[in-house]
Design a binder for these strands. Structure first.
Length: 423
DNA sequence: AGTCCACAGGAAGGGCAGGCGA
DNA sequence: TCGCCTGCCCTTCCTGTGGACT
């Protein structure tokens, strides 16, 4: 048996430069009074400009308070329009009231976009059972068995279940709509409990592609969440910033700028909150007591940059090699071309395959097939790192034309990250 | 009008890792 | 331990596409 090696740690010498920095950080007056109020998971007391949707959803789900079956609801709206927030807000209120009425109501929430959480039929059911307090192994059991156990768990006592499935389109795209058929038909098999389904999606065309039987039972009621305009975003930001900062911490124009930038991104409140939070963090790091408009500009760049760099870093080696091939073919890293601004030329799938094969042979990677490369290129398009368009070049074939979708500084950052892997 | 090209993209299935139950 | 189940990543095979060329 191998004995674990025990290392005796000797007291370390203080690091003067860090010590001083941390001391200064702790003694400085903080900009944030409540940073969490600028995160998407924060639940505010009131939700501005969504009163109508709150009431509508409340009216639909109210029968649950009497232990009756409420209509299944389908909620549409683009990212950051308050779909999730309001579903949780109404659900929490229902739970509160149900405690007073002694009617047992349980709310289950799952987000199907969470990788390895609820992106397959098995994982969705496993997540729901976990919420109900029963641990399920992350693989290994037959789906039939999981369904049986889930039914038994729901039916183990007289109760009403409100099941909120966020990003439902992701699940259906991946696994098909049979799972929704099963979930919407569940009430027929349950003796003691009732289940009501709330499906949330930002894919407006999603419902049209469903099996008609699923469509009719899932979207008994539909709610559409319109995007926020700049004025509405400003109200939201004012409400949250009052909680997050001291009133003197914001330069005039900061909220307006965040709202304007987020309004350009289809009225995305999440984006507006991110911008304000990151601007605050940048101001804090600069040692200032006030957030300036220029911090918002820097925050926008940083929010984009962090996302893209994180995507590039977290990809498997093969995907990184493909992305690196695209960057190389776009002449990123070639200073001479940079000077002449001849970047962003068009590349085809075939070009990427050829360059990728060179990289594979240089770094000893087993090359993927063109079919797989095609899928991975489509994934990078989804991430927003590249932009692709399928075109036909006549007798020279049909292909995908690829160009970089990021600005110069972001491309350089990504190139730097991948350059460390493929030096 | 028919042929051709260079793929796109769907469907099916293989191989692997991991878990459960007999 | 073995057979069976799952998800995941990938390959193989196949059909479809659409504009240039003959």
């Amino acid at each position: 048996m191998i004995q674990p090696q025990i290392q005796i740690q000797t007291p370390q010498q203080p690091k003067p430069e860090l010590n001083q920095m941390f001391t200064e950080y702790l003694s400085a007056k903080p900009i944030f009074t409540n940073r969490a109020s600028l995160t998407t998971s924060f639940a505010p007391e009131t939700i501005p400009h969504r009163e109508e949707q709150v009431k509508a959803l409340g009216r639909i789900l109210a029968p649950l308070l009497k232990g009756e079956k409420a209509s299944n609801v389908f909620i549409y709206g683009k990212t950051g329009t308050g779909k999730t927030l309001i579903s949780k807000y109404v659900a929490a209120e229902l739970e509160n009231v149900s405690k007073q009425t002694k009617q047992k109501l349980k709310v289950l929430y799952v987000n199907c976009k969470m990788k390895r959480a609820a992106d397959t039929e098995y994982r969705l059911l496993a997540s729901l059972m976990k919420e109900l307090g029963k641990e399920v192994p992350f693989t290994g059991l037959p789906t039939d068995k999981i369904y049986q156990d889930f039914h038994a768990l729901l039916d183990s006592e007289k109760q009403t279940i409100l099941l909120i499935i966020d990003e439902i389109d992701v699940l259906v795209k991946k696994t098909g709509d049979e799972i929704l058929y099963n979930l919407t038909r569940m009430n027929q098999d349950l003796k003691n409990s009732r289940v009501c389904l709330v499906g949330i999606t930002n894919d407006l065309g999603f419902i049209n592609n469903l099996d008609p039987r699923v469509r009719s039972s899932l979207s008994e009621e539909e709610l559409v969440f319109p995007p926020y305009n700049a004025m509405q975003l400003m109200d939201i930001l004012r409400q949250r910033s009052a909680l997050a900062f001291d009133s003197s911490s914001l330069e005039a124009g900061v909220i307006e700028k965040c709202a304007a930038l987020a309004a350009q991104e289809h009225g995305d409140a999440r984006r507006a909150l991110d911008l304000l939070r990151v601007a605050g963090e940048l101001a804090e790091r600069s040692g200032l007591q006030k957030i300036l408009v220029e911090h918002v500009d820097n925050a926008q760049e940083k929010v984009d940059c962090d996302r893209v760099v994180e995507v590039a870093k977290s990809q498997p080696r093969q995907s990184q090699a493909i992305l690196f091939s695209i960057l190389k073919l776009s002449d990123v890293g070639s200073e001479q071309k940079n000077m002449k601004n001849e970047r962003l030329k068009e590349i085809q799938t075939g070009d990427v395959c050829d360059y990728y094969h060179k990289i594979c042979s240089r770094y000893g990677l087993k090359p993927l097939t063109q079919r797989r490369i095609s899928d991975l290129i489509a994934e990078f398009d989804l991430f927003g790192i590249i932009s692709t368009k399928v075109i036909s070049r006549g007798r020279y074939g049909r292909t995908r034309v690829i160009s970089l979708a990021l600005d110069e500084s972001l491309i350089k950052k990504v190139y730097g990250v991948l350059g460390e892997v493929f030096y």
